[in-house]
Design a protein around this nucleic acid. Sequence first.
DNA 1: CTGAAAGCGCTAACAT
DNA 2: ATGTTAGCGCTTTCAG
Lengths: 339, 339
Amino acid sequence: MVATLADVAEAAGVHPGTASKALNPESRHLVAAETVKRVLEIATKLNYQPNSLARGLRTKRSYTIGFMVPDLNNPLFPPIVRGVEEVLGPAGLSALIVNTDNDPKKGMQLFDALVNRRCDGFILATAFRNDPVVKEIVKRKIPAVLVNRLTEAPTLPAVVGDESREVRDAIEHLVRLGHKRIAHIAGPQNLSTGYIRFHAFKNVIQSAGLKESNCPTIVSTAYNEIAGTDAVKKLLASPGAKPTAILAANDQLAIGVLDGLKEAKLSCPEDISVMGFNDIPMMARIHPSLTTFALPKHEMGFKAAEILRAWIETGTTPEPTIVYLPCPLVVRESTGPVA
Amino acid sequence: MVATLADVAEAAGVHPGTASKALNPESRHLVAAETVKRVLEIATKLNYQPNSLARGLRTKRSYTIGFMVPDLNNPLFPPIVRGVEEVLGPAGLSALIVNTDNDPKKGMQLFDALVNRRCDGFILATAFRNDPVVKEIVKRKIPAVLVNRLTEAPTLPAVVGDESREVRDAIEHLVRLGHKRIAHIAGPQNLSTGYIRFHAFKNVIQSAGLKESNCPTIVSTAYNEIAGTDAVKKLLASPGAKPTAILAANDQLAIGVLDGLKEAKLSCPEDISVMGFNDIPMMARIHPSLTTFALPKHEMGFKAAEILRAWIETGTTPEPTIVYLPCPLVVRESTGPVA
DNA sequence: CTGAAAGCGCTAACAT
DNA sequence: ATGTTAGCGCTTTCAG
């Protein structure tokens, strides 16, 4: 059916071992140029495709990497995936993508399944600040790189957005528009993105000279629209002067906030300005269009994959360096001057 | 490092062959209950994970399927992927996802790469009406199922939206609102989705008793926003009475149409109503929110994967049946009564 | 420079 | 019920 190495060798009148060497660029120099040529010709004529399972069994490599994401339906992740694959494909690697739905148990099971498949490395977009999968990976010294989310201890290389800077830029943007009462709807605190933005917010508020009592925070337990709506309802129900601006910890929360404001008959940005993070697709087209930060998703995946590829190919464990990518502020309709 | 079958066998005091039978549910009945128990205990204690490359080499199965999509960034596809994985995971299969960008050459290269990896089967969301990859798959009798797009010759099982019915429902919806001049912006005609909707449009216009001269069509060469904007500009530039409604062949084209109308200072739906297909995420949140058809994306992936799983597991080639999934009309702001 | 031989870890036919 | 054996297709020493 499918041509095997032995078939090629036989047709070329050489030993399989020789054919193998001729076919493999690294070992090609050990074989006479003429033999190489003949083997290559036969191989293409027979449409020979090496069986990567057999090769992997022998070389202890699967030419496969595991890519764990929370949920591919979250539009944040597909661009990262594409960035990763742009590096992987040319390197002869393929990605096995799994969705954990932010469930640690499911995550560990899927990780085990990927380990069974002898993945050569991992890219994790799923890290909790304290992550059992990451611990396991580090213990077993498996090549792996984090994207978008960090762990508390910097044990693996990572590529993330520069979130502290984003928060600073956000507050600066709002202050410049005259806002003094700015609320923050924080993300889950077991995720670095939620935690870092939350603490950056506290710090920046202080250093900007804003009154903390005017800048309330609410912590959500999920990064979705409903959580955003719930949070804004809570915010509006609490006593005291209402905020004039709300910084939500990501775009989905911000969308939920917009829903909540509409329900409360408040208009955005006239009554309250709203900001998000990440600039997922369509944020320029919703109503009002959302002011947010353009996380370079494709680049993030690309850079992470580059680090992983080098690690796998050279076999040398890199320093657990964190690459912080700048995220430009994108001003749209949802933020405006304070009334 | 990692425990192997031989390790388990030795620790349990049995032969590797016996351990293999004990571990494998299908062959477990050939081994004494007590032995099974002992082997299983040792296996879990040693955290034994079968090497799927070795198993695959032996069984000539990779427990992997190839999933070809045009572009994961198109929000139509991630939900389909999740539907597919819901079936695959429990069946012990993983998906290798590749993006073809609708490039036939790239598609064939990626297909070859997946064949090298000995994929047990394929799910194709990339089919052209005349598709070389599909031809190759059929020739080689590889299990495969189409999703969302059909080939002209029904050679493989497929799961798609019921597009003729959608077009009928669309025209009915518009006619009920008083529209008599309805234009169609068709998708690429080398794709079944573009072709079927285009021809259904022609037919339905006729059977609805509308004048063909009042119902112009423009064929786009891509399914994206820019193509939609270009098409609507062309439409508005052509002589004669303007249409009061535009049926775009998918949501991305419809978004482009909305852009084009805004540029032309026409308002939707007051001046012109607009409809799309598929109901990709955020269509309820753009402005104006889009009337479209809710393609059951998750179910589509699920059903296709079910067919593929059965094919792979039983080894019996199914009839190339086409499953047409109903797509409910979702009425939103972009369609309204004719002025 | 090429051939011979071994073996990666597993399963499946066969033998006991 | 268990053990024996062979071999999937490839790479990689080691001889020649």
